[in-house]
Write a protein that binds this DNA or RNA. Structure first.
Lengths: 341, 341
DNA sequence: TAAAAAAATACAATCGATTGCGCAAATATT
DNA sequence: AATATTTGCGCAATCGATTGTATTTTTTTA
């Protein structure tokens, strides 16, 4: 960028006043007379003055920027969270620096470092699958960074957290499947070290128990989160000796894979095999049959996250107790799990 | 962020040397003895020194940050472009500041302002549908901002451009439909003021002409880009007097809408109605039938964009002629447009 | 051994905005 | 009219890193 940028010094010189006056005038400080303030505002506008954020940040020790670390931006859930965060943050003049970890621990550490160098005022993070420990986060905390976690969180760390009631979402879904008459319900799960998958599985188990159904370990498949894995898993379930009559998947992608596999094998959904996913990806309602899923209240999560950050930021009392806010999921019943008419 | 950050001055004091030496040592300046450089590096590492990017940017007039303005991050095309950009940029230590215009002109202007305040070293932009003029971009240029456009570009502005050969993509697709025996091919288009839709339509028209087919104005529908509009448009085409036997859509979303509408009406695809979209959204290959589409080479576009930026940035010769790089599309023929066996 | 050359480091200004403190002018108070 | 307030503004330091120009130290050369 060329250096033809106007500074407050330029404005000061043109008006024959000092740069401190210009600074105060621009910020609307009442110690400066209205006449001067207007003169400054006019000239600034006329000359196209843009404050140098770096200089201001350096001096004030605040960047008015928040960093966001997420596994992937092209997941419906995360892009919605981003939307929610920006909606709230932008109103207060904050910017969002988005980083993708690509589910890799190393990249997550790299992102963290980048954001720390940038001296962002806060960091929002949803952990990568690859992050099996939180040393890097602890490191951050010990430096005094304002860290906030959402969705995929470390439940031990003393930080603010916004999470979905994954247990509840899973519980309701499985209960719904049972109501529809399904009795042998399989489950596609994710890595145990990630809270959301752990909790969804807990919800699944609890719902089975409360319904008087038996838990069959062969029906619980770990690490089945993408379409390919879902496809394979479904095929092997259908070919196995414990054939399920429904699948509750922790991921819409693997639920879709299962649907495609069932279709391939001539197994009808929802008749012979009920299917339900999780996350309410847009594609779920477009397939035939549309796939039952759980909406994660993603926009709300983003907004809540940002609002909590802003609240704490304005309060100044840094040492306050960390909050954990739990949002409610919403079960979206679609044809793929509707057997009764 | 708390102020317990270590600075080069702290390191200098601890080592009993000057901060300028520390600065040079950290940057590996050979004027500093190896012994000192190592001592500095060690202490910096030990104390967890993180350079203050703001201070450095302010002094050097370079932020090592590039701004990106796109309509939406959750479009497959754009998130891939982001991936490509980051892959190249991160290697050179640059960061990417992502802004969404939400297809709104006002937001685009707002984003531009934000990025200018941040003094980013360059701005990559793909224009919003709502932006019917480029005054805001001209404004930017006159301030000396290094602006680069991609995909949805202003073809008049003196800036670097990376675009897809939309004409070619459309031409090939329509030619393919003709080869498959389709004769009355409809077209879903987008706003005329956007280059990509204009060029796709041109490709469509040219292909019809070269195939000796007549252009029927009733078969060209403007502003049919999302699923709902595609659905409606297809219904009305099927109910009209000029019923097409194929649809070439400028958007995968409206192509999907058309597919769903055809299915609803009992019109078989590809038998009675061939369908082809544009953008190679992931869902296109998952439907039954999978939808023919045109891949936009999105990752490559991002990489090219970033690489060109870096090249020009290192060359220093700011006034060089703007480039326009045209990438080739790739037609992905799938079942939705395959009538011959 | 003294002078010259080279190597290693220090000094101080700078980037642009902010802000505590102080000074001067305008207004109010006695 | 003299003093006390208030109002409006300028001075200068500061944030942390960078860099042109000394200055000091070490090494080389005559």
């Amino acid at each position: 960028m060329k250096k033809n940028n106007i500074t407050i010094h330029d404005i000061a010189r043109m008006l024959g006043i000092s740069s401190s006056t210009v600074s105060r005038a621009l910020s609307g400080n009442p110690r400066i007379s209205l006449k001067t303030r207007e003169a400054v505002a006019n000239l600034a506008h006329e000359k196209g003055y843009h404050p140098n954020v770096m200089a201001s940040s350096l001096r004030r020790g605040k960047t008015k920027t928040v960093g966001l670390i997420i596994p992937r931006i092209n997941r419906h859930f995360f892009s919605n969270v981003i939307g929610g965060i920006e909606e709230v943050l932008n109103l207060s003049g904050y910017n969002l620096m988005i980083c993708q970890s690509d589910e890799s621990h190393e990249k997550e550490i790299e992102n963290l470092k980048t954001l720390m160098n940038l001296r962002v005022d806060g960091i929002f993070i949803s952990m990568a699958t690859g992050s099996t420990n939180s040393e890097h986060l602890k490191n951050c905390l010990s430096r005094g960074v304002r860290l906030m976690m959402f969705d995929r969180v470390d439940e031990e760390l003393p930080v603010d957290r916004i999470v979905l009631d994954d247990f509840e979402g899973a519980y309701q879904t499985v209960k719904h499947l049972v109501e529809q008459g399904y009795r042998k319900i399989a489950h596609f799960s994710g890595p145990e070290h990630i809270n959301v998958y752990r909790n969804r599985k807990r919800g699944y188990l609890e719902a089975l128990k409360d319904s008087g159904l038996e838990v069959t370990s062969g029906l619980i498949l770990q690490d089945v989160l993408d379409r390919e894995k879902g496809y394979e898993a479904c095929l092997s379930l259908l070919a196995g000796k414990d054939v399920p009559d429904a699948i509750f998947s922790s991921s819409d992608f693997s639920a879709l894979g299962a649907l495609l596999a069932a279709k391939k094998k001539g197994v009808s959904t929802p008749g012979d095999l009920g299917i339900a996913g999780f996350a309410n990806e847009p594609f779920t309602e477009l397939f035939d049959p549309p796939i039952t899923s759980v909406d994660q209240n993603s926009i709300e999560m983003g907004k809540t996250l940002a609002q909590l950050f802003l609240d704490k930021e304005s309060e100044e009392r840094v040492g306050s107790e960390p909050y954990t806010i739990v949002l409610k999921p919403r079960l979206l019943i679609r044809k793929s799990s509707l057997r009764k008419t």
